[in-house]
Write a protein that binds this DNA or RNA. Sequence first.
DNA 1: GATTTATACGAACGATCGTACTATTTTGCT
DNA 2: AGCAAAATAGTACGATCGTTCGTATAAATC
Lengths: 196, 196
Amino acid sequence: MSKGEQTRDAILDIALAKASQVGLGALSIGELAKEAGMSKSGLFAHFDSKENLQLEVMKSAAQRFIDQIVTPALRAPRGEPRVRALFENWFQWAKDSKLPGGCLFIAAATELDDQPGPLRDFLVGSQRDWLATFAQAAKIGVDEKHFRSDLDVEMFSRRVYSIFLAYHHFARLLHMSDAEAQARAEFDSLLAQSRA
Amino acid sequence: MSKGEQTRDAILDIALAKASQVGLGALSIGELAKEAGMSKSGLFAHFDSKENLQLEVMKSAAQRFIDQIVTPALRAPRGEPRVRALFENWFQWAKDSKLPGGCLFIAAATELDDQPGPLRDFLVGSQRDWLATFAQAAKIGVDEKHFRSDLDVEMFSRRVYSIFLAYHHFARLLHMSDAEAQARAEFDSLLAQSRA
DNA sequence: GATTTATACGAACGATCGTACTATTTTGCT
DNA sequence: AGCAAAATAGTACGATCGTTCGTATAAATC
């Protein structure tokens, strides 16, 4: 890895952490440069524009997401175990120290939902992929006869998403200490009513 | 109502709409002044600081919320009808033309969850109140024997919140046209399993 | 080790930010 | 109508914004 690539990655690390806390829009090149210990222009040169920097932050987050959630879960046995692994890894993601402000995508969702452009487009694409991934894992669960044959897997994945959104909201904003346990209970109950 | 109060209200109207779209942090006094057709300093004089402006925006949203959701629902019969009214009014709130960017509190939640201060404090208080209001309405439903006597009303209100968060996410970001119908179905199903 | 290329810096740009003052206009009251 | 108070405008401030440019230094290639 060249010098440029590695400082670029270091910048994205810092920017990702910051964006999870203050949002993508509140990222400032000057401030990032200060935190990265380099000049504003030196940092800027890596991205050519602020919007592109934001986009790269989201792309790196998406890659991280795949590496930490999806790929490891594919090593779990097909069916319910894999669905559980996806859910479990998702939790770890939201608590990752690289994301001190919680899941970047959830923060970006409310920030970008009314702002058309490449940022929003990328986010929407990622979210669709993720929902589809979860639905696909559930479908395998049906094929493996772990789940009911009439299970609506799209609805299933939306419900899991709903559980996660609530967890994020209650834990991060309201500091409910039992939010995680609640979410796990909801997920278990969803699994129970999905089983064959 | 004095001249000052009415321009102040007009400003807050504009600011509320804007904040629902771009977030509280992205509000700019200069831009608001332009939209309100007045000078930057003239507008500023009404609020003394930007943070106070943001706070007043949230306070006016909270007041609106009470007027449009809570108070009207209290006119519905105690028990399940009132719970339904709260939920229904909540939907209308999120689709109110005064909030082109959707529910301000949901947008503010992810924006402020890592930024301590009076803004966050007020938001947390509002959210707690709202959850408690919903739980209280559910409790009356238990008393009226509409709902199971062993219903956990706090969990009930969290579940409703979860449904609403998902609706907001899927409808606003992913533009799922059936998000509202899905949410209503989930709510109905929650009611069904809560009934005596 | 020399040369080319990549990377970072420093200074400056115009624009906009939030805020502070002073002046001018408008409003409400007697 | 006249007067005090309230409301708005105007101007200016230092700071920071994203971006551009020319230059220096470091790294990679030969």
